[in-house]
Amino acid sequence: MTSSARRGRVLVDEDGVLVPTTPYAFSGRHASVDKRRVRAICASKQFSPAEKFLVLWFIGATPEGGLPVNKTGKDIADEVGMTADAVNRMLRKLAKHRILNKTGAIGNISMYSISPYIAYHGSGHDQSRAVKNWNPPEIPGFTDVPLHQAWEVQG
Rank of each mutant, 00 (worst) to 15 (best):
K96Y: 05
V69T: 08
V12G: 00
A25V: 01
P136V: 10
W134I: 03
L56S: 12
K45G: 09
D15S: 10
L91K: 11
G16D: 09
V55D: 05
P116M: 05
G65N: 03
H121W: 08
L147T: 08
H97N: 14
V131A: 06
I76Q: 09
I114A: 04
P23C: 00
P68R: 05
G122V: 02
Q149K: 11
S44Y: 01
V38Q: 02
G155E: 11
S128P: 00
A50W: 04
Y120E: 03
H125F: 10
K45V: 03
M111P: 03
N135G: 09
R6P: 01
R6Y: 12
D34F: 01
A50G: 14
N133R: 14
E64I: 02
T103P: 01
R37W: 01
V153T: 10
S32H: 07
V38G: 00
P63F: 03
M82H: 14
K74F: 01
E79V: 06
F26Y: 14
G60K: 07
R29W: 06
K96C: 02
A130Q: 11
A5K: 15
D144M: 07
D75M: 09
R92P: 00
V69G: 03
R89P: 02
A105Q: 14
R7Y: 13
T21M: 12
L54E: 05
V33W: 03
E51S: 13
T62Y: 04
P140Y: 05
I76P: 07
V12K: 12
R92N: 09
R9E: 13
K35P: 00
S110A: 15
D85W: 10
T143V: 12
F26G: 02
N101Y: 01
I109Q: 15
A25S: 02
Y112M: 08
S3Y: 12
C42I: 07
Y120R: 02
R29Y: 05
N70K: 13
R6L: 15
K132L: 15
I59C: 05
K52S: 02
R6T: 10
T62E: 07
V38N: 04
V153L: 10
A84S: 15
R92E: 12
N135L: 15
Y112L: 08
G155Q: 12
D144V: 00
R29C: 01
H121T: 08
P63C: 02
E64S: 12
A130Y: 01
N70M: 08
N88L: 05
A25W: 02
N135E: 15
S128F: 10
V55H: 03
L94I: 01
Q46R: 10
K102V: 13
V131M: 09
R92A: 13
K74R: 14
V87E: 05
P68N: 06
G104V: 00
G141K: 05
N135F: 10
P63I: 02
S123N: 06
G81S: 03
V145A: 04
G65I: 01
F53A: 12
N135M: 13
R92V: 10
F58I: 08
P116E: 07
E79L: 11
V131H: 04
I76S: 08
P140T: 04
G8I: 03
P68I: 05
V145N: 00
L91Q: 12
A40E: 02
A50T: 14
R39E: 15
Y24R: 11
L94Q: 02
D34T: 02
F58T: 08
K102S: 08
E138Q: 10
D126Y: 04
M1Q: 09
A43Q: 09
D13T: 11
H125P: 00
S115R: 04
L54R: 05
F58V: 09
